[in-house]
């Protein structure tokens, strides 16, 4: 069974009388454990696709089925609960809470799951170890380098063991060394946790790591290829 499936997924933005197709009848499916990427120029619909899959936005037409559930029928509360359980996000700008330590940032998704203090601590430290940042648990984002911040963001995305991790341009604000470091970690996590990773990127370094590359242009899938 596919972890994610889209059927004629369409998103239209209206600017006055003009209709802009951010996504135009996209039909894609992703299996568990995939390490796939959406590539294409700016405005091709990569981020919009991630927003639809992450239930951050609703499609104009078509369906998105995640973990066997059609997400467009979910109300706001159900969508939040769904994201809380199954979906992790990694953002281009890290989006860490600046006034909390690395530990607390990673702990946040677990607070929403109402886990015990001991279990939270165990899971947070495990996630931070996976990104090699256990020793920086008490550091605040302002005390971390860009690469370290993104690793904290990865730990935050994986700490709840989600089925799906959506990463929007995760290396865009990193230098080459940090980019490869972060990608190695994500590939390793994908291997260990069997979580499905979907990237939106146009970074060649990321593309090298992908096992499946989907090229979008003007909201349409123009190529879907398995990488060696």
């Amino acid at each position: 069974m596919s972890v994610i499936k889209t059927e004629n997924l369409t998103k239209i933005y209206r600017m006055g009388h003009t209709k802009i197709y951010a996504l135009d009848h996209v039909n894609l499916s992703f299996e568990k454990g995939e390490f796939a990427g959406l590539v294409g120029p700016s405005g091709s619909g990569k981020t919009t696709f991630l927003n639809m899959v992450g239930i951050l936005d609703k499609p104009t037409e078509g369906r998105v089925i995640v973990m066997g559930k059609e997400t467009s029928s979910l109300n706001q509360k159900e969508a939040a609960l769904f994201r809380r359980k199954y979906i992790g996000f990694i953002f281009q700008t890290f989006n860490l809470f600046p006034h909390y330590t690395a530990f607390e940032n990673v702990e946040f998704p677990l607070l929403l799951l109402d886990l015990s203090t001991e279990e939270r601590k165990e899971r947070v430290m495990e996630a931070l170890e996976m990104v090699n940042l256990a020793h920086r648990a008490n550091s605040k984002p302002s005390e971390l380098s860009g690469g370290e911040r993104q690793r904290v963001a990865i730990a935050r995305a994986i700490v709840k063991r989600p089925e799906i991790i959506l990463a929007d341009e995760p290396t865009a604000n990193l230098d080459a060394k940090n980019s490869y470091n972060v990608l190695d970690i994500m590939a390793d996590i994908n291997e260990k946790l069997k979580a499905t990773f979907i990237f939106a990127t146009h970074d060649e370094k990321v593309i090298k790591y992908l096992r499946r590359k989907i090229t979008l242009n003007d909201g349409k899938v123009v190529k879907d290829e398995v990488m060696k």
Partner: peptide, 15 residues
């Protein structure tokens, strides 16, 4: 708004 956006993405509900 920004912080709220991230909290929503991480699964906190609007209410």
């Amino acid at each position: 708004y920004s912080e709220i956006g991230v909290r929503l993405a991480l699964g906190e509900d609007k209410g």
